[in-house]
């Protein structure tokens, strides 16, 4: 676990550059040093996780922050693919989205999302939530060794 504490690898799957920036800003203020890798849609996310194409040298992330609504392949499909892949399914996936729809929440958990968080609109609240996510998954939760 000491490795994780040194440098937390986070894959942020998010198509909106504004949200990317806000999340990055929030993670900058986080407790643990981290590296955020950003991909813009589901296809790229799976390529990154499977180290395919231009991502052949990508590091395996400790956590995935996943938006739901994206072009090409949306977050639900990515979630399904990750949780079906025996190699990837242990990586915690945090669904971080603006959707409050009950159907989206239910669907995400049916596809084995590790947690579902709605992005708060208020910036202070947002920063707090993102930091909490990081703290929870890095410090509090015990995960299997890679």
């Amino acid at each position: 676990m000491s490795d994780i504490h040194e440098l937390v690898q986070i894959l942020l799957v998010e198509d909106n550059p504004g949200d990317v920036r806000l999340t990055q800003e929030a993670l900058k203020e986080a407790k643990f040093r981290n590296t955020v890798h950003v991909v813009g849609d589901g296809v790229e996310a799976l390529a990154y996780l499977r180290q395919q194409g231009k991502y052949s040298a990508a590091t395996r992330p400790h956590m995935v922050m996943l938006d739901l609504n994206m072009p090409r392949m949306d977050g639900r499909e990515v979630l399904e693919a990750i949780k079906k892949d025996p190699d990837l399914r242990r990586i915690p996936v945090v669904v971080l989205t603006s959707s409050e729809a009950e159907t989206d929440i239910a669907r995400a958990y049916e596809l084995y999302a590790n947690c579902y968080v709605t992005k708060p609109v208020d910036i202070d609240h947002f920063l707090q939530v993102v930091k909490s996510i990081e703290e929870f998954w890095v410090e509090i939760v015990r995960l299997p060794s890679q």
Binding site: N16, G18, D19, L22, E25, S98, K119, V121, D122, I123, D124, F126
Partner: peptide, 14 residues
Amino acid sequence: LQEPLRMVSGFTGL
């Protein structure tokens, strides 16, 4: 409207 609004309020907040 939520999406652009979140940008406005997020970044003005920041």
